[in-house]
């Protein structure tokens, strides 16, 4: 059982796909306009990741090595299509707000990356837990991004408009002067740009900078050189996806 919990911890903390490996950036930036969207996208990805890990692990001895990448892509794409139908049927509002990014889960680096580096070499049960762990890590990443953007950009959290409520509460509490002052200073005005495209980049930048700052402090205590968050220069994915390994390594040198 130790190995399975280790898988979970690995996905959520040690190799967190969003904040440590910086994989799957497209959905991380695109759908985190609100906490609920981030959570929904994370869970959808987790379900697909777990299912595809399980299936690929079961088939790992049957898939010939040369055509494994196309085979993985077909398996992942099939699960994505199935999950998309389920969302359309049972969660139509979530399906609408995630829109184009649901079919794009197919090209999410995290899923193909786990298939190649874990599920293709391990037994089904650990692979399932690997999928759940990584999926939870991704979900946490997206939800944190979504919460920050929603709080700053819309003044609400999971749809609960706390800024407006606080403002009216102050006014109703007989403190009209204070409420007036707050409104004039714009203290309860959300900063709209954070739910638009630029906000996504800025929030992620500051979250990563915060993690870097902590790592630097920790390393300084131990007297080591800090390991900074590096941009995955797509190499991790290309290694997986380029069926011609020679061209892939060549391109890494170039890039």
């Amino acid at each position: 059982m130790g190995k399975l919990t280790e898988r979970l911890k690995n996905g959520i903390v040690t190799e967190n796909p969003t904040f440590v490996q910086m994989l799957g950036m497209c959905p991380t930036l695109a759908v985190t306009t609100s906490a609920i969207n981030g959570l929904g996208m994370g869970l959808t990805t987790m379900v697909i990741l777990t299912l595809s890990n399980f299936m690929i692990s079961l088939l790992r001895k049957l898939i010939p090595d040369k055509v494994r990448i196309p085979a993985y892509i077909v398996i992942i794409a099939s699960f994505v299509t199935v999950v998309q139908f389920l969302l359309q049927a049972y969660l139509p509002t979530l399906n609408e707000s995630l829109g184009l990014y649901i079919p794009l889960i197919v090209v999410n680096c995290i899923i193909l990356g786990r298939a190649e580096s874990y599920a293709s070499k391990n037994k089904p049960l650990p692979s399932i837990f690997d999928g759940i762990g990584m999926g939870l890590g991704f979900t946490i990443g997206l939800t944190v991004m979504g919460i920050i953007r929603e709080v700053i950009g819309a003044g609400s959290i999971f749809g609960y408009a706390f800024m407006e409520k606080a403002n009216t509460a102050i006014a109703e509490g007989g403190n009209e002067k204070l409420a007036d002052f707050m409104a004039k200073q714009g203290l309860f005005e959300p900063i709209g740009i954070f739910v638009f495209a630029p906000g996504a980049f800025l929030v992620l930048a500051f979250v990563v900078a915060f993690i870097n700052h902590r790592n630097i402090k920790k390393a300084a205590k131990l007297g080591e050189k800090a390991k900074l968050c590096e941009l995955a220069d797509c190499a991790s994915c290309d290694k997986v996806c380029a069926s011609n390994p020679n061209t892939a390594s060549e391109s890494e040198v170039q890039a």
Partner: peptide, 9 residues
């Protein structure tokens, strides 16, 4: 702390 990924973002 902003070196690398954050400044690019």
């Amino acid at each position: 702390a902003f070196k690398g990924a954050p400044i690019v973002l």
